[in-house]
Design a protein around this nucleic acid. Sequence first.
DNA 1: TTGGTTTGCTAACAAGCGTTAGTTAGTGTC
DNA 2: GACACTAACTAACGCTTGTTAGCAAACCAA
Lengths: 190, 190
Amino acid sequence: MKTLARKDQIRLKAQMLFRERGYSATSMRDLADELGIEAASLYNHISSKEEILQGICFGMAESFFAAVEPVTLSALDPKAKLQSALEAHLRVIAENSDASAVFLHEWRHLGEPFLSDFKLMRRRYEKLFVTLVEEGIARDSFKKMDARVVARTILSATNWTFESQKTSKSDGDATIQQIAELLVEGLIRR
Amino acid sequence: MKTLARKDQIRLKAQMLFRERGYSATSMRDLADELGIEAASLYNHISSKEEILQGICFGMAESFFAAVEPVTLSALDPKAKLQSALEAHLRVIAENSDASAVFLHEWRHLGEPFLSDFKLMRRRYEKLFVTLVEEGIARDSFKKMDARVVARTILSATNWTFESQKTSKSDGDATIQQIAELLVEGLIRR
DNA sequence: TTGGTTTGCTAACAAGCGTTAGTTAGTGTC
DNA sequence: GACACTAACTAACGCTTGTTAGCAAACCAA
């Protein structure tokens, strides 16, 4: 199917541009230029600018859940579980850094009702990590602390770490484990 | 001086809007509406939209340096120094959360040559923290680790922590110390 | 009272925005 | 060879953008 190929091409370039310049500062003509076609031609493949953003944001939400949720249901001990979840989270970001940046920064330009849906999803995702921390505390594996603050701090640290640094796939895996371990070991150990 | 008062009012509202909607998605008419005047009237006080952004970004850069640089020159031991620097950094963010969000996210919409100047400043600021970590490692106060990774992780964690949560001035100070301690204790202790 | 400064207004500009309409050339299918 | 589909085009739409010009009322200093 060539249709899908072209649509995916659009999405790929859009991810790049939305990340670099932001959603609002990226015009359909910019995007079209990048693909070597006219702006109007884009509408043979997509139905609106916002549709592209929706695809990116909710697509990434799915990826994050698909990677992390299974880990939270596994039978690992709290510390290993949290670290695995974190590594899964980091891997999704590393493997898709443009889309992740858009997911993290540009979602506010979604219109309703998508905006509300997105916020809800985001909350649910954060909750996964909060629960992992709470579990660890309850089972006396982690020191006693505000689970929400810690979970948020951890996610914040991970999200920004990949913001500015290019992630070459060679050192990516090492770095991921290094960061996850650093955070878990440091912030959680009792 | 009433001129300054009005100009500051503009900057204040601009900070709010730039933070909420982003620089590009905020129009001069939006900003004027918020102040109860016409868009054209803004130009009696400022000379361009970008000038407002410049004022915010470089103003905050100054604030951050003014707060943190003295600490780095003090005679505290490495751990106390890093923690104090972090608290200073967090205090600037907490006391000026709108402007900080703009400083952190919207600087890329600066035009040249300001963009390059800004990036340079940012590097210099990050370097302050990297140096603090390096000092601690050299003096054997911190465990051996990649100073750049740790410094970046710490800053990332702080920057995002205040992103989504309203900082009431009452619990602000407690939270700041709590977070700074958490990060320093956790990530740095040998 | 005069004259300047401050702060607002209305009207308008050219450029850029997302998007639609209508068309056309190429491609694969019966 | 006829037909539908794909993917591009040109032209244009109504609207919004940042910004400028010219003007008027209010205030303050001399």
